[in-house]
Design a protein around this nucleic acid. Sequence first.
DNA 1: CCTCAGGAGGCAC
DNA 2: GTGCCTCCTGAG
Length: 306
Amino acid sequence: MQEIIQKKDKIKGPINLELTIASGQTSQAPWIKEEESYKQLITVKDEHCLVKISEDEDNLIINYQSLRKINKSDVKSKVNYIFNLDFDLNKLYEYLELDSKLSQTINFCEGLRLFLADDPWECIVSSIISANNSILRWTKSNTDIKEMFGNKHVFGDEIYYSFPDTSTIKGIPLVGECSRDLRACGLGYRDKYIIESAKIVDTWDLNHIFELDYNTAFNEISKLPGVGPKVADCTLLYGFNFARAFPSDVWIKRIINHLYFDEKSSLTTKKVRDFGISEFNDYAGYVQLYLFHYARCSGLLNRLKK
DNA sequence: CCTCAGGAGGCAC
DNA sequence: GTGCCTCCTGAG
């Protein structure tokens, strides 16, 4: 087990691991909590690496191990990427303070950061599963896919499963042909979307998506079956770190409607997406994250249900 | 038993 | 382009 100590005062703004991991962002299933640390199998330069992250008052502590040799600096930059530690949260808070509707979110979201995907392909699948679904079922499906179809990795007495790649998933038979099918993971009719998407992504170089401008990337990713506007934006935000993406669902529509429009206005999720992108620009993704978490914690979400 | 929530796809207009 | 229905699962 190797160790990386990262001083919190070198990070721009606060970091709350618990909040970030457990806030229901659709990039990946939550990391596993073990006493005071969180652990997960991630990939570092194509090598599988078990990471355990914890914190004390002054430091983030990253412990890691892998079967083959990997560079400490590569582990550090991947973990920093996943927890968006290079992002300046203080600047975001200065921006949120300018709008009284947004400034109230800070109290509920102190240290909440984007929880970015270790693997963009995993994020595409988990975002497809999130559509028309609940967080509880979504989490279970993601975990089941890894355990049923992923590769097993043993570290001492601990067993982890990596997320199955496109060539594995595209070969999974549809329901009825085999008992070990995707529906056994509880994801319902989305099974064919995932298998068909795997066939398409298998012919893509996903790293290419990172290089595109946001609109082009949105059009590209929208070509996949099961990927509509909301899922495309989730994928671009959490899987490819496009800060402008503003995932717009019924919940964010209700919140935006309540805060920025007449209660009786006829907003659609599409209009809300356009509003979010043009209003919040490069902070759109964070504003969506903060508004949703604020609404859930403040009780606003429950009031908007009625 | 029934009803409901949640986005994408598909079809009608 | 907009409106409406179905897809599956688990919770109530």
